[in-house]
Structure formats: C-alpha cells, structure tokens
Design a protein around this nucleic acid. Sequence first.
DNA 1: ACAGCCATGTAATCGGTTACATGATTGG
DNA 2: CCAATCATGTAACCGATTACATGGCTGT
Lengths: 195, 195
Amino acid sequence: MTRAAKTSRGTDGRVATELESCVLGIIAERQPCTAYVVRRDLGVSLSSYWSASAGAIYPLLRRLEERDWIRADENDWGTRKRRSFSLTRTGRKQLREWLSPSAVEWAAAFTYDPLRTRVFFLDHTTPKQRLDFLDHAIQATRSVVGEHRAEKRSLADELSEFDRIGREGAIAELEARLRWLRSVRDHVASSESKP
Amino acid sequence: MTRAAKTSRGTDGRVATELESCVLGIIAERQPCTAYVVRRDLGVSLSSYWSASAGAIYPLLRRLEERDWIRADENDWGTRKRRSFSLTRTGRKQLREWLSPSAVEWAAAFTYDPLRTRVFFLDHTTPKQRLDFLDHAIQATRSVVGEHRAEKRSLADELSEFDRIGREGAIAELEARLRWLRSVRDHVASSESKP
DNA sequence: ACAGCCATGTAATCGGTTACATGATTGG
DNA sequence: CCAATCATGTAACCGATTACATGGCTGT
C-alpha cells in the first residue's frame, strides 16, 4: 500500500513506519507489556491490514529498542527470558509526533479499498458476472459490518473511550461502502434491463 | 494490513498481488499500451496506495510476461525498444478471476485508515493536542474530498461509466470519514468543557 | 544548442510475509 | 502424561520503495 509514504518523519529526523508507530501506541497503552501482548492487541484491533506475525513484531521491537524508543526489563521464565517493554522518553515524544497535525496530511489523503479498485475494471466482465460480483460484495460487506457491531457490543465494557470511537468509525466507513455498493448494484441492474 | 492476504489465487494456482491484478486491468482497458501509460493511469487513479514507481512497474511487467499473462510487441524508437503490452488469453482469464465472487471475501474485510488508527491512541495526547489533531484531520479530509469532486467534474466527459462510479465510491467513503471525524471532534470538545 | 520533459530502465534496500523451530504452561 | 495452547523467536523470501542512470523528443 502506497505503499506510498507509509512512513512519517519523527522529531529526531528518524522515520517510523505506520506499524512501528502503532506498536509504540500499543506499548504506551499496556506498558509494561510483552511482545505477545503487542501481537494480540494488534490482532484484535480493527486493522485487518497487518498480520501481526511474529516475523514482523520481534524484529520491529528490536529496532525500536535500538532507537531507544522502548526499553525492556527482563525477568526469567524457565530457561527463556521474558521481556517487558515500556516507552522511553524519546519513544513518548515519537508517539506524540505521530499523533500531531503535521502527520495528518498524507494520512487524510489515503484511500484504499480493494472492492472499489475492482469496480473500476468491472466493464471487463459480462453483465451476469458483474451482478454476481456486486451481490457477493454486498453480502460480504454486510456480514463484516455485522461482525464489527457484534464485537463492539460484546467488548462494550472493556473498551476505552477512543477504542469505542475508533470502532464506530470503522463501522461508519463500512456502511458508507455498503450504501455505495447497493447503489452500484441498482444502477447496473437497471441499465441492464433496458438497453 | 494484513498485508495479510494481499494476494489472490488465480485459475492456474498462481497468485497475483493486488497491484499485479490492477495492472492487468489497466492493460485490458488500454491495450496495446506501454509501461509508461500503465504508470500514468495508475498515478491518476484513486488509489493513493501505490506510488506507481518505475522500480515497481517495470519488473512487474516482466513478471506478467513470464507468466504469459501479457504479451509485448516491440517497435523501435531510436536505439531503444518501445514495448506495447496486451493481455493474453490467460491474462484475461486471470483478470476475470480477480473480479470474481471468490475474491470478494477478504477484499470486503479490508479496512485501513491511518487517521482512524491514530484516533485509537489519542488518549496519549493532551486535550489541546487532541482537538488540534482532529481539526487538522477534518480540514485535510475536507480538502481531499474537494479535490476529488473537482477532478471528477473536470474529467467528467472522458470518464468511463465504472470510472465515474468508482470515484463516487471514494468520495462517499471520504464523506463518511469526515462525518465521523466531526462527531469525534464534537464529542471530544464537549467532554472537554464539562469534565 | 540547450533546458526540460517524456520514457525506459537498474540497483540497493527494507519492511513485512510465510514457514519453521522450540520451550513453557494448562487442562483433561 | 499428553495435547493443546501460550510464548518467543529465526530464516528465507519477495514486492515495493527510493534513488539513480540514461536515451529521445520538443520548444525556444
């Protein structure tokens, strides 16, 4: 994705990827916390964007540590170490930078929706396939909205204020997508029947 | 992002990334066309997601050629070759696969919005910074919506049906995001004044 | 003739993915 | 005790990014 500008320049000139910043945020919320907690939080968060795979997170945490944005206390746990991370002063600064107006510009311009991308090319299918695609898209989106709503309800009590607000935002955007898909479907169906 | 599943399995078992599929779509629309045209089309398309950089496109086209999804006729142009690409039969099949219901599931689940991601962590800023962030976000989103509207209007005549529809979708989602941001802003402002 | 854009590429780098390995803990 | 799950990592790969190099065309 844009992959365009997925990084934002921080206070010390260092750049952080979105994922790195997001992890900083999670650590801020849960510190001191382990890599595992970071992964789990990331997994249940809205963003279906990152896989939260170990191969992504562990090296990332090492990077953050090297930059002195996070610090780890080690306590033992069997033969292995168990490391709990907290933000450093610089890390907190970096996080605030990520949440500052200066970072907003490109974030606001960001739009990406793989369903919509496909719609652009729908004229390369037969009318029947088109309707088929749209019907499935509507169905799938509906069910995703449902899941989000259910999850929000079931988590209701344990969600922080901004967690709740964020989830509402995701639902609102999905609903807009759904309304649009329906209008496309209607349009296609009607231009179908009377040409 | 989930980066997760940014690929979809095609008819012959081969997987294609979203970008690869998207390029197949562009070639279908413009064939025979050069790499440069592909890049330009991608650049003006809605998706701020890809940079449409040469370093992405040229190797990608080579890949598609190796898989026999596209074919190039070469005509000379000075000392260099100028290659014009068209879809092969397999390529067309692959494109239709990408536009089939089976690909819809994960595409529908995909949500990502860097502004929203940030809102999740807004409790790690001061109240003042929060409002600042939200005001800028609203402003930036408003202006992006404006640009899209203007562009749609100015291109009106040369847009294909689904181009126009796709752009409307992008605008609709941005407007939903904007409404949500405003409600967040109001909420934050009011919970601010009477704590 | 030269500046500036159009156009085609290559090289190095890097973040994130999948797949794998392995140790610790818990529940039946 | 054994299976399942919790938890911590590593290795190989790969698509996309930035930065660079270079050739051809166009207008003044």
